[in-house]
Amino acid sequence: MKADVQENKSLVLIVDDEPFIRMILRHFLEREGYKIVEAQNGIEALTVFNQLHPDIVLLDAMMPDMDGFECCTQLHSLDCSKYTPVLMVTGLEDQESVDRAFEVGAMDYVTKPIHWAVLRQRVKRLIEQSHLQQKLEAVNVELQRLVTIDGLTQVPNRRRFEEYFNQEWQRMKRDQQPLSLIVCDVDFFKLYNDTYGHRVGDRCLQEIAKAIKEIIKRPADLVARYGGEEFAVILPNTDTEGATYVADKICDAIRTLAIPHKNSQVSPHVTISVGFTTEIPQPDSDLEEMIAAADRALYQAKAAGRDRYSSNH
């Protein structure tokens, strides 16, 4: 048990220009089980903070050159300071100083002479709150991910598709760059489900999602499950030539999977029909119309015999 406690010691940064104050704070906090690092002024504090990312900062308000208030302001401008509480240690207890401490981002303050039992509780509480906040944010990020991912295929869902398409539409409109949209529909999928059953149908969709995902490599591109057996691909900064290449690769990749489909009317294997459109969004153009154009292209691919791609400009 003792070893675990050693491993998980929180790191406290003590910032004070008086060596004696630093020493007594160090002795007290080490006895409470914390690891300690010291800085004798604000400049040094910023350097140490950047290097070691402490769990809490005990910051003296009154220091020469850069006082605690200015130091606290600068600490909060650092990228890595998001979760690190600052506890101001001050000889001042007038309202103006207390207000200022909170204004510059201190989470709490203690006054000199230090009341040790109060300091002990405040350090403990601030570190616990900070750790809890980090955990909550991590959980929220994961929940957000789950809300936007399709449970079966593990690619983004329709909701995420709509969010992202809107975002990229606006971005391409601003930059006057081409945006391509591909929609795909698994051929005769109802027949496939009727022939092999829904569990096998689910596995088929998983394989198809994986195959499409492997083609779409750029970080800004997005593959989503658009509906039952429909997938959509958003390709920002992609012209007609680029979209044609991707559409062709998708059709080919699904053929290569060679998933048996004995009742398909176009092939002994599962195939996919693909429609796409490319546009440089204009101030008066309509996002919904672009989706409709890709859908029309998909319809053309199906009408022409499926297992192919078609474009709509």
Score class of each variant (00 low, 15 high):
Y299F: 14
Q206C: 08
D221M: 08
S10I: 04
N41C: 11
Q40D: 08
K302I: 06
E230Q: 10
T73Y: 14
Y299C: 03
I21E: 01
R122D: 05
F28M: 06
Q129V: 15
D202M: 09
P178N: 06
F102W: 10
C71T: 15
V15N: 01
R122I: 00
Q282I: 03
R308G: 07
M63F: 10
I250H: 11
F49K: 08
H76D: 09
Q167R: 09
Y192D: 08
M107K: 13
Y109H: 02
N263F: 07
Q176L: 15
L119D: 03
A292G: 09
M62I: 13
N263C: 07
V186I: 15
Y83K: 14
E230N: 05
I272N: 00
V98W: 14
T278A: 01
P281K: 00
M88F: 04
C72F: 00
T90R: 08
I259D: 00
D60Q: 12
L11H: 09
Q51N: 02
D252V: 07
D150W: 06
G201S: 03
R120E: 11
N193A: 11
A297W: 10
M23R: 15
T244Y: 05
K35A: 07
M290P: 03
A232K: 01
F189M: 07
Y226L: 00
G227P: 00
I182Q: 09
E70Y: 01
A209N: 00
A304G: 05
D194I: 14
C251V: 13
Q144V: 00
G91P: 04
I208D: 07
P156V: 05
L298W: 05
Q133H: 14
T90F: 02
F102K: 05
V155S: 11
P236W: 07
L75F: 03
K135W: 15
A39T: 06
I215G: 04
S97D: 07
K2M: 15
M1W: 04
S77G: 05
E207S: 12
D284Q: 00
F188K: 02
E137Q: 14
L59R: 13
T195H: 08
Q170E: 15
G305M: 01
A301R: 03
E279K: 10
R31N: 10
E38H: 07
I182T: 06
D108I: 08
D79E: 14
E214I: 04
A45G: 01
E229P: 04
P156F: 08
H27E: 12
T111H: 09
E93N: 15
A45S: 13
E207A: 13
N166E: 12
R22D: 11
A292T: 09
E241Q: 15
N193H: 00
Q133I: 13
D187A: 12
L257E: 02
V186C: 10
Q6A: 13
T271G: 04
V186Y: 01
F231R: 01
N8V: 12
F165S: 07
T195W: 00
Q170M: 11
K124E: 14
L152V: 13
P19M: 03
T244F: 03
I24C: 08
D4W: 12
Q51G: 07
